[in-house]
Computed example of a mutant assay.
Amino acid sequence: METNVSTVRSSAAAAEPFSTVPIFGVEFSKMGMNETVRYLTDVIERRQPTQVITANPIMVMSALENPAYMNMMQQADLIVPDGAGVVWAAGYVGEPVAERVPGFDLMHRLLREGESRGWSAYLLGTTQEVIEEAARNLQAKFPGIRIAGVRDGFFGASEDEEVVAAIRAAAPDMLFVARSADKQEPWLARYKHELGVPLLMGVGGSFDIIAGKLKRAPVVFQKLRLEWFYRLLQQPSRYKRMLVLPKFAVKVMREKENVTKRTPKP
C-alpha cells in the first residue's frame, strides 16, 4: 500500500506495520520515539533477529557512493531518523517523520523498558577500558538489566567467528555495537542471523559518552538540532566527515523531486 511517497512496511518480527519515507533510496521510519520503543519491544519479545540502523545524512551519502553500503541499508529491518538533517529533508519534501529518534536515547529507552522484562544486553565496541566503564555505568543506572557481556571493537575479520560465538553463547536480548560507521552496520548485517540476538543496533559514540570520555550536547544544542556541531567542537578531527552535511542539504534542495524516488531493492 502506498500513500503519496510513503509506504507501510511490515516485518515478521512485529505485529504492527510502520510507515516509511525514502530519502535517496534509504527507507526511514516515520515513527516517533514512543512508537519505535513499542515496536522494538514487540520485536524483542518475539525474539526475531532485527537490525536497527540509526541513520544520518552522512550515512545516506555513503550509501549513494557505495552500492554495497546501499544494499546493506536497504536490507535493514528498521532505519530511524537519528540525524537532524534527515528530519529536515523529510519535512522539506513534504513527507515529515514524527520526530528525530536519536540512537543514544533509543538505547536508553530500551534498557529502561527491559528492566521490567528481565532483558539482557551485550556491549561491543570502542576500547576495552571504555566499554567496561560504560557497562558499569549502565548497570548502575539500569540495575534491572543484566549485562551479558562486553568486548572491545578492535578486532579483524579473522576474529569474527570467535566474537560471534561469544555473543551467541551469552544469548543477550539486545546487542549494542560501537565501531566506525563503515564497520558496525555492515558487520551486524553480515552476522545478524548467526548471532541470534533479537535486537541488533549500532550506537556510534554512545559508549564514550556513557563512560564519561565525551560529553553529550547540552539540551539547547539538541533542541536547535546542533548536536553534530557540539560533537565537532569536542572532536575537531571529524570536520572532514561533517563537510558532507552541506552537500546533503544542497542535494536535497536541487533534487527535491527525486529525493523520495524509490529504487529497486536487490
Results as ranks from 00 to 15, higher is better:
Arg100Tyr: 00
Met107Arg: 06
Glu129Ile: 11
Ala140Val: 08
Ala55Arg: 07
Pro67Phe: 01
Val130His: 04
Thr126Asp: 15
Asp82Phe: 04
Tyr69Gln: 13
Asn66Tyr: 04
Pro81Glu: 00
Gln128Asp: 14
Phe104Leu: 00
Glu113Lys: 08
Val150Met: 05
Asn34Phe: 12
Val87Thr: 11
Arg117Cys: 06
Trp119Thr: 01
Gly94His: 02
Gly144Ser: 00
Phe104Gln: 00
Trp88Lys: 04
Leu110Tyr: 03
Glu35Lys: 13
Ala63Gly: 15
Glu35Pro: 14
Ala89Glu: 12
Lys141Pro: 08
Ala68Ile: 14
Ile145Lys: 07
Glu115Thr: 09
Val101Thr: 04
Asn56Lys: 08
Thr50Tyr: 04
Glu45Ala: 04
Gly118Pro: 00
Leu124Thr: 05
Met61Val: 09
Thr127Ala: 09
Pro96Gly: 03
Phe154Pro: 12
Ala98Leu: 07
Pro49Val: 02
Ser116Tyr: 05
Gln51Tyr: 07
Arg151Ser: 06
Val37Lys: 04
Arg146Ile: 14
Glu113Tyr: 05
Val37Phe: 06
Met73Phe: 04
Pro102Ser: 14
Asp82Ile: 06
Tyr69His: 08
Val130Trp: 05
Met59Val: 02
Gln139Tyr: 01
Ile131Phe: 01
Ala140Asp: 11
Gly114Val: 11
Pro49Asp: 10
Ala89Ser: 12
Gly114Ser: 14
Ala68Thr: 12
Ile79Cys: 03
Arg47Lys: 15
Glu113Trp: 13
Asp42Val: 03
Thr54Cys: 14
Glu45Thr: 13
Val86Trp: 09
Asp82Met: 10
Gly114Asp: 10
Val43Tyr: 02
Thr126Asn: 12
Gly114Ala: 08
Pro143Cys: 06
Gln128Cys: 05
Gly125Asp: 10
Val52Glu: 15
